[in-house]
């Protein structure tokens, strides 16, 4: 007399379903990540704001000249720009950053920096974090 479900059949069915779900989840995660990148990174309005901030910092000689890989620039001297542009943080980084140099950064900034291309003739990069709709938007521009 055969009753019920064999344990082996159940385990095989569950293993198959788990594999299918994992595949679906990984595809879905990739989609969501790409959508997030398009939304938060390098919005055109923020790129122009970043350009003006760079120009203003250069004119006022507020761009630090030290050799650190990543430095934060304070909003103290450009408070009006920071307020109107909704700037949260300003960073001056090497144009090409090594992995270990990014380790101490916040995860959202690190994700953004990992997303950037190293192509370009600039020595430094100005990266600005904007606080819009309670989200962190990023834009960057090369600094010679």
């Amino acid at each position: 007399m055969k009753k019920g479900f064999a344990l082996l059949e159940t385990m095989i069915a569950i293993a198959f379903l788990a594999g299918a779900l994992l595949l679906l989840y990984s595809t879905f995660s990739g989609l969501v990540l790409n959508a997030k990148k398009n939304y938060l990174y390098d919005d055109v309005a923020n790129i122009y704001k970043t350009y003006y901030v760079k120009e203003y910092l250069e004119i006022k000689d507020l761009i630090p000249s030290s050799n650190e890989a990543i430095q934060e620039i304070s909003c103290t001297e450009i408070e009006s720009l920071c307020t109107n542009f909704k700037i949260k943080k300003i960073y001056l980084t090497n144009y090409v950053l090594k992995e270990e140099e990014k380790n101490t950064l916040a995860s959202s900034l690190k994700d953004y920096l990992n997303n950037l291309s190293d192509a370009g003739d600039y020595l430094k990069r100005l990266v600005i974090e904007y606080d819009i709709d309670n989200n962190s938007f990023y834009a960057n521009i090369g600094v010679e």
Binding site: Y39, D43, A45, K49, Y52, E55, L81, D133, N135
Partner: peptide, 12 residues
């Protein structure tokens, strides 16, 4: 409304 969709123009 999402501020990110607004048209924001700046000039210094």
């Amino acid at each position: 409304d999402a501020e990110k969709d607004d048209i924001v123009l700046t000039y210094v």
